[in-house]
Structures are given as C-alpha cells and as structure tokens.
Design a protein around this nucleic acid. Structure first.
Length: 259
DNA sequence: ATGGTTGGTGTCCAA
C-alpha cells in the first residue's frame, strides 16, 4: 500500500499538476493539505477515471484537508478532537483496507508564526490535542499513519540553513519538544527509518530563490504506529516535481507498506 | 535586517 502526503497549496490552482503526479506515482492513498476550498468547491470531476474515492474536510480560502484512495475509504471522520470551538479544517481520518486495514490520519498542523503570540499558542495546544488522539489510536494496537504537513523542522539536519529558522515557529525548541512528545509515544518517522543524514527536504519557499539554491526544509512527515512500522518497506520524497511549471512549494512524501 | 512569491475571491491575509 503506497501512501503519500502532499501539501498542494490550493487544489483549484494545482488540480492538473496533481492528476499528472497521480498518474506517474500511482499512490494508493494520498493525504492532501491546504486545499483552500470548501467541500462543494473541490473539483471532483477532474479526478474521474483515475479510480480514487475522495473525502474532503474543506474550508473557504484557507487550510482544508482531503484523503484520496483507490482502495476505498471507510469510517471517515473530520476534525481533531479536543476543542469544539476550533473552526479550522486541519484533520481528517479514514480506514483503508488492502491486505490489512490501516487507519489514515491526514493533518495540516498550524504554522504558528509569529511566535510568541496567539498563533503559536494555538499551534502548541493543537499539538497537545494531536498527542491525545495518537494516544487513543495506539490503544487500538492497529496499524495507523499520521501523514501531513507538520510545520515542524524536527532537527537542524532537516534544514539547509538551520540558523535562519532559530526564531521561527517551525523550529523553536518548544515546537521540537512537542513533536518529540508525539514521536516518543512509540511512533516512527518513516522517512528517517529509511534515509539518514542531511540534505533531504520537502518544502522550498517561493521567495529568494530558495529552490535553485536548494534552501529547503523537511516539514512533511509520515509517523507510523508500531504495527504500521512493522510493515514499512520503503519511503521517499518526490523532489523532482518542484522544478515543474507552477509547482506547489511542497513536494510529495510517500511510504510503501506491506498492507 | 530586508525582501522576495504564491493562492485565495482579496481592495490584504496566510504562508
């Protein structure tokens, strides 16, 4: 089962590029972030004939997540538990059944800038709610995947210029500690289980020639439950699509599970 | 320190 995460930065602006990538990469499951569209505005018709079932949790203008699956979607739920007043569309779950059933959680973790401030407080509180949800899922002892844009640079080796991110919400010690608290529940960073060392990025800013300078950061992650980690066969980053016309500022990250 | 770019349905905000 090939599972990918891709911050698409606007589904309406990127639908054609997404279809091209789906045809090439042939993922079974894709978690999308920043669709920047309501459920009604998602261009389902552009994906007809590709064989994907689509579940969205959209919002006008900002945020918005979706899951695409060519193995079907069961028990879809929307929203991260823990704050009934939270209006931001950043979390969606579904179960996908291949050889095994895998619970897929697609997430768009808050950016948190500027820090300190209310946006940073929201980010840290959201991460604590995510930790609680992961804890509940671990109790099921079933395979699950937390896939998305985490807006966290886990370590200095995950940035081309770590010093440029010192004061940024993506790399502040509290952000890294909150990420580690989730990881330390017993989850596995799938990419890091397969590839070690610096120089592996998933995001390059549109500004200041970040892409031609390879000034990137690794902020899109797939965390695996112990039962999912046992099934991990491979992981990778589809870096090359960043050089295409009108790309997203993120690229897809994928895993292959024996499931 | 600053500036640079993109998408949305915007006369600026979020990233």
């Amino acid at each position: 089962m090939k599972i990918a995460t891709f911050n698409i930065n606007g589904i309406k602006a990127r639908a054609e590029a997404l279809v091209d990538w789906l045809r090439e990469a042939e993922p079974d499951v894709v978690c999308l972030q920043e669709i920047k569209a309501t459920d009604e505005a998602f261009p389902h018709e552009l994906f007809d004939g590709l064989g994907y079932t689509i579940a969205t949790h959209g919002q006008k203008s900002f945020n918005g997540v979706a899951i695409l699956s060519r193995l079907g979607l069961e028990d879809v739920t929307r929203g991260l538990p823990g704050d009934e007043g939270d209006e931001q569309a950043r979390w969606i779950e579904a179960t996908v059944v291949g050889k095994r059933a895998v619970r897929i959680c697609g997430l768009y973790l808050p950016n948190g800038n500027p820090a300190p401030g209310p946006k940073y407080d929201y980010k840290l509180a959201w991460m604590e709610r995510m930790r609680a949800r992961a804890t509940a899922l671990l109790a099921t002892e079933e395979p699950f995947v937390l896939a998305g844009d985490y807006n966290v640079i886990p370590q200095d080796e995950d940035a081309a210029k770590p010093e440029a991110w010192r004061e940024d919400a993506l790399a502040l010690p509290e952000s890294r500690a909150a990420f580690r608290r989730i990881l330390n529940l017993g989850l596995t960073d799938a990419f890091r289980a397969r590839v070690r060392g610096p120089g592996h990025y998933t995001f390059w800013d549109y500004q200041a020639g970040a892409w031609p300078r390879n000034n990137g950061i690794r902020i899109d992650h797939l965390l695996l439950s112990p039962q999912a980690a046992d099934l991990l066969r491979d992981a990778g980053i589809d870096k090359e699509i960043r050089r295409r016309e009108k790309p997203s500022d993120h690229v897809p990250v994928w895993i292959d599970l024996d499931a």
